[in-house]
Design a protein around this nucleic acid. Structure first.
Length: 166
DNA sequence: GTGATGATTGTTATT
DNA sequence: AATAACAATCATCAC
């Protein structure tokens, strides 16, 4: 069927109208976010002997991913929004945990997700892409403002930082 | 107790 | 065109 018809590019490419593909004129703000504020608490599991590899925190040489904010980016810099895959992860995680209460971390889940993700058809993924695309638009907007603000006065540090001591 | 890591794919930015 | 880096999450490791 016509699945392949659109996968060509979900990416919004540019601008403004490009999003018309799935954007309805009347729909400017569609927020469908399954948000969940659930917190799971796991008990203590302490065991562990997985030889993963020694991970000296001394990252003398970041191999490929400095996970820490090494970039002196401003705190006001809009971070990259999660990609479609990440959104899928959110949903998948919950289910996966239910089906596999034994699994603990995302590392295992991530692998399962990746595999499944590839098996998913565009139609299934499109909804995630849709969300991601929208998020990007918002991010794009935020980026412009960020730049604007930055040029205006990067010295302006947020003074309203809630750094109140309690 | 804190910081860092690992794993997944997607998108962006840069070259 | 292609590569690099980063996005969220959370159990686990190192000190």
């Amino acid at each position: 069927m016509a699945k392949k018809a659109l996968k060509s590019k979900i990416s919004r490419s540019s601008s403004t109208s490009a999003a018309s593909a799935k954007n309805s004129p009347s729909n400017q703000k569609m927020v469908l976010r399954a948000k969940s504020s659930e917190k799971m608490k796991s008990s203590g599991q302490q065991s562990v002997f997985r030889d993963r590899e020694m991970r000296p925190k001394s990252k003398s040489k970041p191999k490929s991913k400095p996970k820490k904010k090494n970039t002196k980016i401003d705190a006001r810099m809009p971070k990259k929004p999660p990609t479609a895959f990440f959104y899928f992860l959110e949903d998948f995680r919950k289910e996966f945990q239910e089906q596999n209460p034994g699994i603990k971390s995302m590392r295992d889940i991530g692998k399962a997700c990746g595999e499944k993700w590839k098996t998913m058809t565009y139609e299934e993924k499109v909804k995630y892409y849709d969300i991601a695309t929208e998020k990007r638009a918002e991010f794009d907007r935020a980026m412009v403002e960020y730049i604007k603000r930055k040029e205006s006065g990067e010295d302006q540090e947020s003074e309203d930082d809630s750094e109140f001591d309690e």
